[in-house]
Computed example of a mutant assay.
Amino acid sequence: MTRIIAGAAGGTTLTSVPGSGTRPTTDRVKEALFSRLEAYNVVHGAHVLDLFAGSGSLGTESASRGAATVDLVESADRAAAVAQKNADAVNKVLGWTAARAHRAKVETYLTRAAEDLTWDLVFLDPPYDFGETALIEILADLVVHLAPGAVVVLERSSRSAEPHWPEGLERFGEKKYGETRLWFAEPSADSAH
C-alpha cells in the first residue's frame, strides 16, 4: 500500500499502478528524500515536475507538503489514469487543484512546454533500463526550464553508473538506499534563469 506520508493529505492512500512496468518509490526512500528536500527548503511553494510519474507518488507527496503546483507526466495509459486518480484524491483533501496528470512522453512534454515555464523541483524516475543517451537528452531539455535554485532528483538503480550531466546541470549530492540511488543536481550558476 502506497500512501502520502506527511502534510495536509498525510495518510491518504494512493492507488498503485497494476501489473508490471513501474517501480514505485518505497515509503522508506520517499520519507528520506522528502526529509532532505525540506532541509533544502525547496518543497513549500514550489512548482514541481514529476517525470515518469507512474502513480504520481512523489508529486502528490509534494502537493501534500505545500507545493504550489505539481505536473505529473506519464506516457503509459493505465499509469497516467492512476496518477490522475491520485492527484484528484490529494486535490480533494487540499480543497484546490494543486496536482494534475499529463498523459505524454516525457520528451514530448518537455519540447512542447512554453519556454518561460520553469520548475523549482523535478523528479525523474525512468525505468532502470532506460537508455543513457535518452536520459541525457531529457536532462538537457530540462535545463532551460529550471528556476534559480531548482533541485533535480534522479532515481536510478544503485548499480547504475553516475549519469553524464549535460551542460547547465551539476550534481551536488547522491544517496543510496538499498537497490535505489538518488542523484541530486542543480542548475549551473551560468545557466540559471
Rank of each mutant, 00 (worst) to 15 (best):
E61W: 08
S157H: 13
H193I: 08
A98T: 14
G149C: 02
N91K: 01
L37R: 01
A80Y: 12
H193M: 09
Y40N: 10
A192Y: 02
V106N: 11
R100G: 05
Y109F: 15
T118R: 13
V42Y: 08
V122R: 05
V90Y: 09
I138F: 10
G173I: 09
T118M: 08
A87V: 03
A150P: 00
V90L: 04
A101P: 14
A101N: 14
A81F: 11
R103Y: 10
A113H: 12
N91R: 04
L117V: 13
A46M: 06
V143A: 05
V17F: 07
E179H: 14
A185K: 03
N41G: 08
W96R: 15
A98S: 11
H193Y: 07
A99H: 04
E162G: 06
K85I: 06
T25D: 06
S157P: 13
T69L: 03
R181P: 01
L49I: 01
Y40H: 13
V70L: 00
L110G: 01
G131S: 14
K92H: 14
E107I: 10
D190R: 11
G131V: 07
D190L: 09
H44M: 12
V82T: 13
F172C: 04
R171W: 12
D129H: 10
T108E: 11
R181D: 11
Y128E: 04
E31P: 05
P163K: 06
V122Y: 05
D77C: 00
Y128W: 11
A8G: 01
F34Y: 10
L135K: 09
G178S: 07
G7M: 03
V82D: 10
A104T: 15
Y177T: 06
E186Y: 06
A46P: 11
P187L: 07
F172T: 09
T12D: 00
S64C: 00
F52T: 13
E137G: 06
G131C: 08
N86W: 03
G168N: 04
G149E: 05
R28P: 03
A89K: 12
P18F: 04
G56M: 02
A147W: 00
A99W: 13
M1R: 15
K176E: 13
D190E: 15
A6N: 05
A39W: 07
F34D: 00
K92E: 14
V122K: 12
G168D: 04
D129I: 02
P148S: 00
L49V: 07
K176W: 10
A83L: 11
V153I: 14
